[in-house]
Simulated scan of single mutants.
Amino acid sequence: MAKPNKKGPSKSVDIYCAKCGEKLYRYRKGGKGALVKCFKERITEDYTSNLGVCPSCNSVFGRDTLVRGTPAIKIVGGKTRMK
């Protein structure tokens, strides 16, 4: 399978915790669909201290995985919001 484009799309979104509203990431997202995974190379600003854990409410919103051979964070459904 093809690897994701390193430069990525130009559209950036903010990702927030659905439980407490804390800002988690600034991410270059491609497409119009729901947020299922975040490729680590496309994260422009990271506000978390532990990978996949909200810094304020400590809820787990994602897990570390490989997608198409590239490191990514697989997002748990309903745990995050995008703006």
Rank of each mutant, 00 (worst) to 15 (best):
M1E: 15
P4Y: 07
P4S: 09
P4Q: 08
P4R: 14
N5C: 11
K6E: 11
G8I: 00
G8K: 00
G8V: 02
P9M: 04
K11A: 14
K11G: 13
S12Q: 15
S12W: 05
S12P: 09
V13R: 04
V13I: 15
V13N: 05
D14Y: 12
I15Q: 00
I15N: 02
I15V: 15
C17T: 05
C17W: 01
C17L: 06
K19S: 10
K19G: 07
C20G: 07
G21C: 07
G21L: 05
K23T: 09
K23R: 15
R26P: 00
R26D: 08
R28A: 09
R28D: 13
R28L: 11
K29Y: 02
K29D: 03
G30A: 05
G31M: 01
G31V: 10
G31S: 04
G31C: 05
K32F: 10
G33S: 09
A34I: 08
L35F: 03
L35M: 08
K37P: 00
C38N: 03
F39D: 00
F39Y: 15
K40G: 06
K40R: 12
E41W: 06
R42P: 01
I43Y: 06
I43A: 07
E45D: 14
E45I: 05
D46S: 10
Y47T: 04
Y47K: 06
Y47V: 04
Y47D: 02
T48I: 09
T48D: 02
S49E: 14
N50R: 14
N50K: 14
N50T: 12
G52V: 08
V53Y: 10
C57D: 07
C57L: 10
S59V: 13
V60Q: 14
V60L: 13
F61K: 01
F61I: 04
G62Y: 04
G62W: 01
R63T: 12
R63S: 12
L66M: 15
L66D: 15
V67F: 05
R68D: 10
R68F: 05
P71C: 08
P71T: 07
A72K: 00
I73T: 04
I73K: 00
K74R: 14
I75F: 03
V76W: 05
V76H: 09
G77C: 13
G78H: 04
T80I: 14
T80K: 00
T80D: 01
T80R: 01
R81N: 04
M82S: 09
K83R: 13
